[in-house]
Each structure stands twice: as structure tokens, then as C-alpha cells.
């Protein structure tokens, strides 16, 4: 990544990003020149109907996809997609992911799932134990640490996924429709939890969602439609 000169950089910034997919002979314009800034500590929902580009934007911000054109800056540094930059290291150290379908590793227990990123970071067993216990207690799942994903409810699984995303204390957590597969009561509980983590630990959350409940919790909502930002981006 190459660094910009300004010290007061947004956490993430996109400049004129375009993402076009080719499906057979058809070109699908998922994002059409988006420029957005996300500051540290934000609790932001990216909303819009299916096909509006929410997930594509999240994928680009999460460095798991590259734009057709335009640039992404993370903490002021331009992200390079040339294969020379170890994007996996950036994802590991600075980003956390929460998926709609939880995406836990089924053969691992809740504890082991949360521990997994720390293994990649080569943390010592003592450090791992401390960090996993802390985060599992934060999401109130310490008692369920030995359970495998199929022994947990949807809400519990999502909390394990949140714990996994949080355990290495990333700067930014990207959550793709985090409440889509859980009931509203559990969704509310999950959102409260994320809200608390945001306020107490200043973790930045970006959600893609079309869930009204999530939007009610968000302090800022970015509305997308057909790959562009609708007028009237709202700050709650």
C-alpha cells in the first residue's frame, strides 16, 4: 500500500470506484464510480435493494475483491491489487468479517473458531487463551466454547462469528447482512452487542443490509441503487 500525506485520513476511502462483471456477453455494472469516506468509530449501514451493489462494495472494502477502476485507501494507504501486496495479512490484522450465513468452520468448536485468526497471527497459546476468553465472554458465549456450530442456535453462531471478527481487535468490521438469517429478537440482541462494542471499543462497523432494524441502529446510512449513491445519504 502507498501512503497519502494527510494524517487526518478516513479509515477507509473509495475514489471513483467502478466494478463491472462480465456475465457471458453481458456487462453488469455493480458499482458506477463510488466515492465514499468512512471515519474511525462509524456504525454505518449500507442499504439498498438486491443488486444495488451493497455486497460488492463491502467486498471491495474488505479487500477480497478488486475494483475494475478507481482506488481504495485504507488508513490513508492506497490498496494495490498487483499480487505483490500481502492482502491476506491486511485482512488478518486490520479487518474482521461477519457473514450472513455465519461461515464458521464446522469441525471446530466455538473456541477454536474464534482462535483461528490468532493461530494465523502466530500468537502464543497464553495470548490466544486470554484473547479468546475475553471476546467469548464479551459475546456471552464462554459457557458454549466447547460446542460445535451445529450445536448452537443461529444467534449463538452469529455471536461466535462476531467474536471471531473481533478477536484480533481489527480497525474495521464488515458485516454482510448479519441479521438476515436470525429472528428479530436475536437480531436485536446481536445489534445491541455490536453497538456496545462500537461504543466501548470504538470498533468501526460497516453493514450491508436491507433490514429496517439494522438501519434503525445505524448512525449513518449509505443508500445504494444500481451501483450509485442515492441522493440524501442519511446521517442518523
Amino acid at each position: 500500500m502507498s501512503k497519502k500525506g494527510n494524517d487526518m485520513n478516513p479509515l477507509v476511502q473509495t475514489k471513483e470506484i467502478i466494478k463491472t462483471y462480465t456475465l457471458g456477453r453481458t456487462e453488469v455494472h455493480a458499482l458506477r464510480g463510488l466515492s465514499l469516506d468512512f471515519e474511525p468509530g462509524e456504525f454505518t449501514a449500507i442499504s439498498g435493494p438486491s443488486g444495488s451493489g451493497k455486497t460488492t462494495l463491502l467486498n471491495l472494502l474488505g479487500l477480497i475483491d478488486s475494483p475494475t477502476s478507481g482506488t481504495v485507501f485504507l488508513e490513508g494507504s492506497q490498496v494495490k491489487y498487483n499480487g505483490l501486496t500481502k492482502l491476506h495479512s491486511i485482512r488478518l490484522e486490520k479487518l474482521g468479517f461477519i457473514f450472513q450465513t455465519f461461515n464458521l468452520i464446522p469441525v471446530l468448536t466455538a473456541y477454536e473458531n474464534v482462535e483461528y485468526p490468532l493461530l494465523l497471527m502466530k500468537k502464543s497459546s497464553v495470548q490466544r487463551r486470554e484473547m479468546v476468553e475475553k471476546v467469548l465472554r464479551e459475546v456471552r458465549l464462554w459457557e458454549f466454547r466447547k460446542h460445535k456450530p451445529n450445536e448452537l442456535s443461529g444467534g449463538q453462531r452469529q455471536r461466535v462469528a462476531i467474536a471471531r471478527a473481533l478477536v484480533n481487535r481489527p480497525k474495521l468490521i464488515l458485516a454482510d447482512e448479519p441479521t438476515a438469517n436470525i429472528d428479530s429478537a436475536t437480531a436485536s440482541e446481536i445489534l445491541d452487542l455490536m453497538h456496545t462494542l462500537n461504543e466501548e471499543d470504538n470498533v468501526t462497523f460497516l453493514f450491508s443490509t436491507h433490514d429496517q432494524l439494522v438501519m434503525q441502529h445505524a448512525r449513518r446510512i449509505v443508500k445504494l441503487h444500481d451501483g450509485v449513491i442515492l441522493n440524501g445519504e442519511s446521517n442518523v
Binding site: 474488505g62 491476506h88 461461515n103 471471531r164
Partner: peptide, 16 residues
């Protein structure tokens, strides 16, 4: 496949 995608997304290197 999906699990592999998840592992890569959370920071697993391709070599790992």
C-alpha cells in the same frame, strides 16, 4: 468451497 472462501477472507494465506 465456501469454507475455503471464509478462511481466505479472514486472512489465511494461500500457502497456509
Amino acid at each position: 468451497t465456501k469454507e475455503i472462501g471464509t478462511q481466505l477472507a479472514v486472512g489465511t494465506s494461500r500457502l497456509r
